[in-house]
Computed example of a mutant assay.
Amino acid sequence: MPTQPVVRIGARGSKLSLAQSGMMQRRIAASLGVDPSDQSAVERVAPLVVITTTGDRVQDRRLLEIGGKGLFTKEIEEALIEGRIDCAVHSLKDMPAALPDGLCIAAIPEREDPRDAFLSRGPESLEALAQGAKLGTASLRRQAQCLHRRPDLQVNMLRGNVDTRLAKLEAGEADAILLAYAGLKRLGLGHLPKSLIDPKACPPAPGQGALAIETRICDTEQSWVQALRHEATMVSVAAERGALTALEASCKTPIGAHAWFEGGSLKLIVEALSPDGVLAFRHSGETDASQLSDPEASARDLGFSLGMAIKEEAGDAIEF
């Protein structure tokens, strides 16, 4: 009898990461012929390997101060390269534009809601916050977008997992916080937001709401990888990450990008701001992805061209 293949899944140890990885674990197991409701069988063919990253360990500083968003992926990618795991499940918004040699984003499942969620101890929206209210966030993009709309706000650095941030809000360390709505929904907390931020008015982080399945390049055609791919999502996030590549965006660069399908067209809005929210540069465009032989490449080109247009317009006004 042939031996059942084992797919070892690398994940961070946070509650959200384990919830997201568990979703993918069950789908991988199903693609390998295992009943996804049989948890012991699922664990046998697709075990989770928990890996603590530098981004998890250092919680008292912004990511830009300690090396950027790649600190949420570095140790996991080392495990992939060394063959200790077979794939990794990441929040796509945490993935840098460039990946280590030999690795790739092999699959992106269907995307959750990409919007930012507004949570507070009273007011229903950012506009309803009192003059000089405290907004808690560790995201430069959220900081810049909120200050662009409400320059009177006091922005406090607020890092930590979802539970930690919710506890800090409840304790009064902030009057309001912004979190990815997708993460709240995956944790069963989708009822908590007071309101949701319009993604066309304030584009979220490129890839927000989507999960990335990272593998070694040699494993991209494995059947369990193919089973996780959602083509429409892969096209839309290709556009957003094309902009990311053009702007060479890191945690030092507040950038938002939102792609969506409307009719037969893929539409994209890209925005870059100064950290204080005073300057904002925005470009939008569309492409008929349905008529092309390589829709992902076309989407990526669209994102790249819009990102370059912003870079040219902004000049030295924003650090890229």
Results as ranks from 00 to 15, higher is better:
Met95Leu: 08
Ser195Asn: 10
Ile9Trp: 03
Leu184Cys: 01
Ala259Asp: 14
Leu169Pro: 01
Glu296Gly: 12
Gln154Ile: 07
Leu147Val: 04
Ser31Cys: 08
Thr220Cys: 11
His283Phe: 07
Glu214Pro: 00
Asp163Gly: 11
Ile177Gly: 07
Leu196Ile: 09
Lys134Pro: 01
Thr220Glu: 14
Val270Trp: 12
Ala297Gln: 14
Asp316Gly: 05
Ser14Pro: 05
Gly264Glu: 15
Asp294Pro: 04
Ala144Tyr: 12
Phe320Glu: 05
Leu63Gly: 02
Ile76Cys: 08
Gln154Ala: 06
Arg121Leu: 11
Ile51Ala: 04
Ala227Phe: 05
Met95Ala: 02
Asp163Val: 03
Ile255His: 02
Leu244Asn: 06
Thr53Lys: 00
Ile197Gln: 06
Gly68Met: 09
Gln59Thr: 11
Lys74Leu: 09
Gln4Ser: 15
Leu32Val: 09
Arg149Glu: 14
Ser284Leu: 01
Met1Trp: 14
Glu313Trp: 01
Ile255Ala: 13
Pro114Thr: 11
Pro47Asn: 07
Ala97Val: 05
Arg57Thr: 13
Leu147Glu: 12
Gly22Met: 04
Glu43Trp: 00
Ser40Glu: 15
Cys104His: 03
Glu75Cys: 05
Ala107Lys: 01
Thr233Glu: 07
Leu179Met: 11
Leu279Asp: 12
Pro47His: 00
Arg111Lys: 13
Cys87Ser: 03
Ser195Asp: 12
Phe281Leu: 10
Phe118Thr: 05
Ala30Met: 00
Ile9Tyr: 02
Thr53Gly: 00
Trp224Glu: 10
His258Pro: 02
Thr53Phe: 00
Ile310His: 06
Asp219Ala: 10
Leu63Pro: 02
Glu312Phe: 08
Ser21Pro: 00
Ser298Ile: 08
Leu169Ser: 02
Arg12Tyr: 10
Met1Thr: 12
Val49Asp: 13
Ala297Leu: 12
Ile85Val: 15
Leu196Val: 10
Arg12Phe: 07
Val155Lys: 11
Ala314Asp: 14
Gly183Asp: 13
Gln222Asn: 09
Glu286Ala: 15
Arg229Gln: 07
Glu127Trp: 08
Ala106Asn: 03
Arg44Ser: 14
Glu271Cys: 13
Ala246Gln: 04
Leu119Asp: 11
Val270Phe: 12
Ala176Leu: 06
Gln59Arg: 15
Val50Trp: 05
Ile197Ala: 02
Pro254His: 06
Pro203Trp: 04
His230Lys: 06
Gly315Asp: 13
Gly83Pro: 13
Gly70Cys: 04
Glu231Gln: 12
Leu16Ala: 04
Ala272Asn: 08
Asp198Asn: 13
Ser120Thr: 05
Gly264Thr: 11
His90Ser: 12
Ala176Cys: 07
Asp35Ala: 03
